[in-house]
Design a protein around this nucleic acid. Structure first.
Ligand code: ZN
Ligand code: ZN
Ligand code: ZN
Ligand code: ZN
Lengths: 146, 146
DNA sequence: CTTTGACCTGTGAGTTGGTCATAGGTTTTA
DNA sequence: TAAAACCTATGACCAACTCACAGGTCAAAG
């Protein structure tokens, strides 16, 4: 298979195939006649595996490690399980962080409903933003949060 | 104020101050004697404003636009409100996406509890990943989801 | 007076996972 | 035979910083 063929078979951009090849995830053989890369069914399996792993949150270096370990006939499963749990915790941390941002944004929107637009006066840039207090921040100079 | 002073006053990395300066958010004057940048109270206000805006999800180009608009004595408020609503929708989309990932990961973890580790046999790389089906994907070749 | 350490300068690279542009070579089709 | 579609490698680009490097400046301590 040539680049576009394997790319179509896996539903990815041909540049992604070239990128994964450069990164060592795919290992095509080169045709010396025309310098083209030739991918086989094994490469397609690896490519699909890589895409599936990406959907599960694995990074490219991690996927490469899994593939290399499998090439050496070592079971990648324990490492997969371990990485996966760390990744899940990280995803949950990101969700929490984004939900915090969402909460901040909604509280700001609510407060802004009652605030008029202002003209910058050299003392203020935009009161909407400046008068918004980060609920997650510690009081900075003795302020009391009622 | 010199770089480290304004950075400490705003609680950011001095490199961030230099970066924001390069990006046009801060406009220090240069001391011709020693080539040092000199920041004033206005810059500190802009820096704190920029950090607060970042916490609310604004991008650097957006913050620069707000600052430039305020410099021209035009009210940035309508634009702030508009950008903000789009950003909120985007944040909620990201949250949904991450929660989808989390759901996929947890369903995978659950399924993996009953699966033994396997040795790669040239036909399989890692059954944990390969036998996991993306619940959000459409059936690919006539499979029925029970 | 000199040395040391903390600070300053600009530039460029690294992060992540691709995507796109460029310029030139090859194969297939009309 | 010429256009269309494909291939190649390389490098830039995205976001928002962070860090490393090499060299200049300045205050205090010896
Ligand atoms: Zn496995
Ligand atoms: Zn305060
Ligand atoms: Zn405003
Ligand atoms: Zn199928």
């Amino acid at each position: 298979m040539k680049v576009k063929e394997i790319a179509d078979a896996a539903g990815v951009n041909p540049d992604t195939v070239r990128f994964y090849t450069r990164e060592g995830l795919l290992r095509p053989v080169r045709n010396p006649d025309n310098n083209y890369q030739h991918y086989d069914a094994e490469d397609l399996r690896r490519l699909r595996f890589a895409r599936k792993s990406r959907q599960l949150g694995f990074s490219l270096p991690e996927i490469r490690q899994i593939l290399e370990r499998a090439d050496d006939q070592h079971s990648p499963c324990p490492m997969v399980r371990d990485v996966f749990e760390h990744r899940l915790a990280e995803v949950e941390r990101e969700i929490t962080e984004l939900q915090g941002l969402r909460t901040r944004m909604i509280s700001a929107l609510t407060a802004w409903q009652d605030m008029p637009d202002g003209i910058p006066d050299g003392h203020t840039i935009c009161r909407l933003i400046e008068h918004w207090d980060d609920p997650s921040a510690a009081p900075c100079c003795g302020e009391q949060t009622s």
